[in-house]
Amino acid sequence: MIAVALTLATVAVLFAIIGKNPIEALDVYFLEPLLDPFSLGEIVVKATPLVMIAIGLSLCYIANVWNIGAEGQFLVGAVAGSWLAVRTNGTDAGYWVLPAMLVLGTLAGALYALIPAICKVRFGASEILTSLMLVYVAYYGMDYLVRGPWRDPKGLNFPTTAPFDPVATLPPLFEGSRVHSGTLIALMVVMLIAVMLGRTIMGFEIRLVGAAPKAAGFSGFNADRLVLFTFAISGALAGLAGIIEVAGPIGYLQPDISPGYGFTAIIVAFLGRLNPIGILIAGFFLALTFIGGENAEIAMKVPLDLTKVFQGILLFYVLACDSMIAYRVRLIRGVRKAVPANA
């Protein structure tokens, strides 16, 4: 909470620097979207993938495993699910298409996430770097498919697939809104993970390995297996989020299906303090910054990049506050001078 307040203050100053009225800007950014029913729906639409990815990532981060390639797993999930939608397009395939797409997306995300996990476990390659590099690979792979073999022949040369058939799309929950049943899936996932983390041996193992790796090793828990497990779960959820995004609000595959959900979800996971309920709230809040940023761009001609600045600053404050809670900062002067506050 302190972190959010500090961020708001910093952003207000930033607005003032670029010559906009800070109060008006904060209002456009954070209040107006909440008061308008359409914007509110859009926030929920954006929060859905964020929460789903972040909840998976939180498992990794609790266990001290660093999957930062969720963006790639999201894209691969979207592509794998879309494969079925593209193949069955225009045929009289039944209602099995959508569930099969969701399963495919989940599996593909998990498999893609297992690549860095296996590289880590088998060869000791840094999972941070490999998972991130695979984001670029996934992006170019999808770009190729959408511009090449999967391009809609009737699409006026736009790099998109044909719109998915109704059996391959998630129905909206309410008339006239883009809020779709994927949101319900996300809520279910949050509950499942919360139960797993708090009530099962696996959840205990994740928390133990993260908090005290040596103790976990002595008590016979296998850290390697945990790397594979957390990567697979987080990849599966990112992949599921990907196919839901394509089959829900978008309805076809195109190159820019994600405004960086996989990366923003990292902030969501930390802002939610790696806690399922916290992540739910944090996901909603960061979705608000996306929508607020879009509104502010239209209403006040504020560049869209400000949203990223905002998210970066927020993550800094969250991390700093966490540390302030854990330690007491002392300024030590003398021969062995420590360098805290004045660094």
């Binding site: 990223k308 600045v309 998210q311 970066g312 991390l319 854990a326």
Partner: peptide, 21 residues
Amino acid sequence: LGLAVNQVATGLALTILGTGL
């Protein structure tokens, strides 16, 4: 260094902030 925050997370935040700024 000053606040002993996790280096991985801070580095990521730095990249996000840098891209935006």
